[in-house]
């Protein structure tokens, strides 16, 4: 079971702390990564994989973005984001030396400790690979504690594949199976074409001893769970990361509610069994 509260909840959770951009990297057409360091006099932000920060662009706005870096090296705070509105558009313009306000970390974490001793299946769709990456880092850093480790990743087109170099390294260096597929191929693409759920039947794993972590658009996660269930993985062992409108990130503004769950505080990582009924009701 995922714990509800991070190690050390921020003392003044409504005040952004200044972080400075160390590197700004474009990833694809609409996705970019910012590597941040805490400004002078401020502590690095220790976090657990799956948590998110509220990122503030001075005078523009604030958005919730999952942390996508390595929890073992919190001195570099990494966020990979898609441009979806005014604030993320402004974030993309940031350069080395620019400042960003950071509030966090908030939310629940991927159950990487609880998964020790089992097979771990990561199923990522689109930008969903970014919130899963910290969990991958964590699992790979203690590789001997896990059984089979598999990453299934679906991207829109080959040009939208994130962390390409890392994917190749993971496949090459570690005892980690990596399967990538795209919804739409280009002329040159020689890999899989089709939905990421189609990769699931191809991977041998023990459904009774597997923890599945999935992140991506809600429709994709629903179908992923269906496919995993077909393989015999119980919904209690599948964990999803949900998104809702967030303003305060501390469970007090009411915006992120899904049923009685505050996604910012009881999530964003949930065991699927806990939210299954809620996701089934339209416009809940």
């Amino acid at each position: 079971m995922t714990a509800a509260v991070p190690h050390a909840p921020p003392a003044a959770p409504m005040t952004p702390h200044p972080f400075v951009v160390q590197r700004a990297l474009p990833e694809t057409d609409d996705t970019f990564t910012l590597e941040l360091a805490a400004d002078r006099g401020f502590e690095p932000l220790a976090f657990r994989p799956g948590q998110f920060n509220m990122l503030y662009v001075f005078g523009v706005g604030e958005v919730p973005i999952s942390i996508s870096g390595d929890p073992a090296t919190p001195q570099t705070l990494v966020h990979t984001t898609r441009v979806v509105g005014a604030t993320t558009r402004a974030m993309r313009q940031l350069k080395r030396g620019d400042q960003l306000g950071v509030r966090g970390p908030f939310g629940t974490a991927w159950p990487v400790e609880e998964a020790e001793g089992q097979d771990v299946l990561f199923v990522a769709g689109g930008i969903g690979l970014a919130p899963l990456r910290p969990a991958l880092y964590r699992v790979l850093s203690r590789r001997e504690r896990y059984g089979r480790v598999v990453l299934l990743y679906g991207a829109r087109t080959p040009d939208d594949i994130l962390f390409r170099r890392e994917l190749r390294n993971w496949r090459a260096d570690f005892d980690l199976e990596v399967h990538v597929t795209v919804d739409r191929a280009t002329r040159e693409w020689r890999g899989n074409v089709g939905v990421v759920t189609a990769l699931i039947p191809r991977v041998p794993f023990d459904p009774r001893n597997t923890v599945a972590l999935t992140c991506g658009p809600e429709v994709m996660m629903r179908f992923t769970v269906l496919e995993l269930q077909r393989r015999g993985v119980e919904p209690e062992h599948v964990h999803v990361s949900l998104e809702r409108n967030m303003k305060c990130a501390i469970g007090l503004c009411g915006h992120c509610q899904l049923g009685a769950e505050f996604v910012c505080r009881d999530g964003p990582v949930f065991p699927y069994a806990r939210v299954r009924r809620l996701l089934d009701v339209r416009e809940l």
Binding site: G59, C248, C253
Partner: peptide, 16 residues
């Protein structure tokens, strides 16, 4: 008890 958060800036962009 629901609230929203509004970020504003002045015309010069120096104060928020």
């Amino acid at each position: 008890f629901c609230t929203t958060i509004e970020d504003t800036t002045d015309l010069t962009g120096r104060s928020a």
